[in-house]
């Protein structure tokens, strides 16, 4: 059993790498790398919420807070330090640290579903309002002016570690982001296969039972929350490097809403779903943005309503079950699907 599990894990990693390599090489033929880069970054952001919501059962209404925080930390420290390696690391670690504090406050307070939603929403709003009001010259961190609504432009973008003159941009930035996404994806896969990940799924399914079995539910949820935030922070830092400016809209409610829509459309409880949902919908929005007949927001709203009503499990699980149904041999495994989905995506 143990041997076959390891073997299937190794096979999955190889499959992931092969598919990813083909996609990374082939996609630039279809879409420009400038657009692709941001799709990849959004994919990573989607994955961050997909991890904590789909596998941990934590519905965070403020994933955009961590995204924006990562971007701002990167921008501020890049202005002060003048290169990008340390700011990248800071963006991930400080965001995770912030989430650790916030998560500890929420989960040790035994807050659940709606109340959790309110707190994360409120924290996002606080950040949004605060950053928006920092237009005055007194709001300075080191050499970086926070700039209020105008944001922070003109910071050091991503460079080759150790050589601040060698910028990574254009095609190269796309490849860096894509590889980063694959690495994060594999790390998430590994995390979910580990006992930590299985216990996280157990907590999602039945929190009381896991607590009675002796697991420290609050601590585990806090750590999972922080890991999700770290991924969002990394996505934020990469986004800052791509956009070359950070503005308070990164913290906006609309941004948070979009991340949730990506997860729902792609499929909760899968690793691939949020990534596909994020990249797909962001691309759809990009395409729709080029026409002015129908308002973009209207279509995104319609997509969300339709998915909640008719396809609440999302695209990826629906396609997977269609596939299994058509193959037939796997069609009768319904009762175990939930656990299978949790483990294999």
């Amino acid at each position: 059993m143990g041997g076959s599990a390891t073997r299937s894990a190794a096979r999955e990693v190889i499959l992931t790498l092969v598919v990813a390599a083909i996609l990374i090489a082939a996609m630039p033929l279809l879409i420009g790398t400038y657009t692709l880069t941001v799709l990849v970054i959004y994919g990573m952001l989607g994955l961050s919420l997909g991890l904590i919501w789909g596998f941990g059962g934590i519905l965070c209404f403020g994933q955009a807070a961590f995204f924006g925080l990562g971007a701002y930390i990167y921008a501020i420290s890049a202005v002060n330090i003048g290169e990008s390696t340390l700011p990248m690391i800071l963006a991930v670690l400080l965001t995770a640290g912030f989430a650790l504090l916030l998560g500890a406050m929420m989960f040790y307070g035994r807050l659940t579903d709606v109340y959790l939603g309110v707190i994360t929403l409120v924290v996002t709003l606080i950040l949004f309002k605060f950053i928006n009001s920092t237009a005055g010259p007194q709001y300075v961190i080191g050499e970086a002016r926070l700039g209020g609504f105008n944001g922070i432009p003109g910071f050091q973008t991503l460079n080759v570690p150790g050589d601040p003159g060698a910028y990574i941009w254009g095609d190269a930035l796309y490849y860096v982001c894509a590889v980063a996404l694959v690495i994060v994806f594999l790390l998430v896969t590994w995390l979910l296969r580990s006992s930590f990940g299985r216990i996280a799924v157990g907590i999602r399914e039945n929190e009381t039972r896991m607590a009675l079995m002796g697991y420290d539910v609050a601590a585990r949820k806090t750590v999972l929350f922080a890991i999700g935030a770290a991924i969002a922070g990394l996505a934020g830092a990469l986004f800052a490097s791509w956009a070359e400016i950070v503005t308070p809209t990164l913290f906006s409610l609309g941004q948070s809403a979009e991340i949730i829509i990506w997860c729902i459309v792609g499929g909760l409880g899968t690793r691939l779903g949020p990534v596909v949902g994020a990249a797909g919908l962001a691309y759809l929005e990009f395409v729709l943005g080029q026409q002015s007949m129908i308002d973009n927001t209207l279509i995104m709203g319609l997509v969300l309503v339709i998915f909640v009503l008719f396809l609440p499990r999302g695209l990826v699980p629906a396609i997977a079950s269609l596939w299994q149904g058509s193959v037939g041999a796997f069609g009768r495994r319904r009762p175990v699907r939930r656990m299978r989905r949790a483990r294999h995506g």
Binding site: V114, A257, L298, M300, G301, L302, V305, V308, L309
Partner: peptide, 25 residues
Amino acid sequence: LYGRLVDTMLATWGLSLMFIGLATM
């Protein structure tokens, strides 16, 4: 969607986006 708290939140969020889009148009 009665009885499905999170689903109603998401569906009404979608509705809110639709109304914004309609009002803009």
